[in-house]
Amino acid sequence: MAKLEETLGKVPALTLGFWIVKIAATTLGETGGDAVTMSMNLGYAVGTAIFAVAFLATVALQVRATRFHPALFWLVIVTTTTVGTTLADLLDRSLGIGYLGGTCILVALLLATLFTWQRSQGSISIDSIVSRKAEFFYWLTILFSQTLGTALGDWTADDKGGLGLGYAWGAVVFGAGLLVVIGLYYGTKISRTALFWAAFVLTRPLGATVGDFLDKPLANGGLALSRYGASAALLVFIVLAVLLLPQRAEKVRASA
């Protein structure tokens, strides 16, 4: 019988610093994606193509790496949030699927990926990412969750084809959802892996609605801040957070 031993993996441990940077990165994905597609008038298809290339390039470097590099990991996360933003907008708006339709499709893709990952590898926990195949499922799950977050955030906040809660109230709803997950983590014995992925998914629409709140016009319930300025400020914050907040690799279980 194979003996299990702990080694350091290539993804970060789930510290408070991890979640702070994650939320900031998801917000940057919204403002940065909108800056390219809307402010630069490149459109959703071109924006998606640009960020898809960036995602594929950075994830290839991440997969080839032999150890955890905080800057590289968070660069991949940022590319997933930006391509997720533009891809969701492409599906919802350009292709006419709508916010609810896009959300349903992406929920199905996310659940299918998690199910296939579980069946293939036996676990979807981050402490079991010990092979390139597991890494593939990990990043595909993250990509779908980031894309879902934009569609879900827009569906919740927008009054044209959505629930019409507005960006500020949308952020409150998803923030409350995160508080519920935290309460379940400390107050119940529900699977920590399930709660992690629930929190990971919820941080994306939270970031999406906060990002929209910052840069959307006043008439649409936003603050009408410059997308470039907001994106630059968020990028500086993320860099400082990665440098200053504790960043350590997650321990993984590998067969000895």
Score class of each variant (00 low, 15 high):
Gly162Phe: 08
Phe144Asn: 03
Thr188Met: 10
Thr103Trp: 06
Ser191Ala: 09
Val180Glu: 10
Thr103Cys: 05
Ser125Asp: 15
Val107Asn: 00
Val130Leu: 03
Ser131Gly: 02
Leu91Met: 14
Gly164Ala: 03
Arg119Pro: 06
Gly122Cys: 02
Phe136Asn: 07
Asp89Leu: 12
Leu163His: 03
Gly102Lys: 10
Arg119Gln: 13
Ala134Phe: 05
Val181Glu: 05
Ser125Met: 07
Ile190Val: 14
Val173Phe: 11
Cys104Leu: 15
Leu184Ser: 01
Leu163Trp: 13
Val173Leu: 15
Val180Asn: 09
Phe137Arg: 05
Gly162Trp: 10
Thr116Tyr: 13
Leu95Ala: 06
Gly101Ile: 07
Thr103Leu: 02
Phe174Ile: 03
Ile97His: 07
Gly175Lys: 11
Ile105His: 08
Asp158Thr: 09
Ala171Asp: 11
Asp158Trp: 05
Gly101Ser: 09
Ala112Gln: 10
Leu152Pro: 00
Ser125Trp: 15
Leu140Cys: 05
Leu114Ala: 09
Lys189Val: 10
Ala168Cys: 07
Ile190Gln: 13
Leu184Asn: 03
Thr193Pro: 05
Val130Asn: 13
Ser94Glu: 15
Ser94Phe: 08
Asp92Cys: 11
Tyr167Gly: 01
Gly98Asn: 03
Ala112Lys: 14
Arg192Cys: 03
Leu179Gln: 08
Ala108Asn: 11
Gly122Asp: 05
Tyr186Ala: 06
Lys133Tyr: 00
Thr193Leu: 08
Asp154Val: 01
Tyr167Arg: 04
Leu184Ala: 02
Asp158Glu: 14
Leu152Arg: 04
Gly122Val: 02
Ile142Tyr: 03
Cys104Pro: 00
Tyr138Thr: 02
Ile126Met: 14
Leu111Met: 12
Gly175Ile: 04
Cys104Tyr: 15
Thr156Trp: 05
Thr141Cys: 08
Asp127Trp: 14
Ala171Gln: 08
Gly166Cys: 04
Ser145Gln: 12
Ala134Gly: 04
Thr103Ala: 09
Phe137Leu: 02
Ala88Pro: 06
Gly149Ser: 09
Ala157Glu: 07
Cys104Phe: 15
Thr141Tyr: 07
